[in-house]
Amino acid sequence: MLTTNNLTKTVKLPEQSLTILSEVSLTVNEHDSVAIVGASGSGKSTLLSLLAGLDTPSEGEVELAGHPIHKLSEDERAAVRAQYVGFVFQSFHLLPGLTALENVMLPIELKEDKNAQTKAKELLEKVGLAERLNHYPHQLSGGEQQRVAIARAFASEPKILFADEPTGNLDTANGEKIIDLIFDLNQQLGTTLVLVTHDDRLAERCQRLVRLEAGKVIEDSVNESFEQAKTAETA
């Protein structure tokens, strides 16, 4: 689903150039869930932006759903995103000018799907906001806004969902709900999940854990507790 090869990002500063990410090679399989963890400034967000095609690497390759996105133009990458990718952000990033329903409809409409409204309503029902379809973001609480954002992320039926600190702006109770929601939907819809987080509860729920330090992968492990939970489930 997602492969990187020697992914490197350097930024030129007036004095020297700074390497934010150095030779990261990863492979994420379909239906995987991967947590990228690490201290602030370790390069997590940069890696996420490269994986999702929001930015281009200085060196190395990224292949997303078979597309070599490091070679593509802005618009071509946008087309790949529209086709395969969903996003959930720390600060929700809902469009304040649109209602909850309209926000969720947007990515579906971008795919020129005629049933945008029906699909968006279904998703909002799934995240428990059936009563708040016509509310504007500022009329919703933080947790509710993030639920709308999650509905929007799944609206385009993405093959892969990127989440950047999805619980970062929420209190514990709401954070829990959001985590449940992401994983439930992930399972229902068979999406691949890549998330960047500080939140141990969130990282624990993923199959795989990639730890970054100073731009390098220092750990890439299968999550034991996840394996245990899985085994327990099958048993």
Binding site: D75, V80, R81, F87, H93, L106, P107, L110
Partner: peptide, 16 residues
């Protein structure tokens, strides 16, 4: 700018 970034992120083309 924020809104446009979201549109672009959601896959809207520059021309759109």
């Amino acid at each position: 700018y924020d809104y446009a970034a979201i549109y672009r992120c959601l896959g809207m083309q520059i021309a759109q």
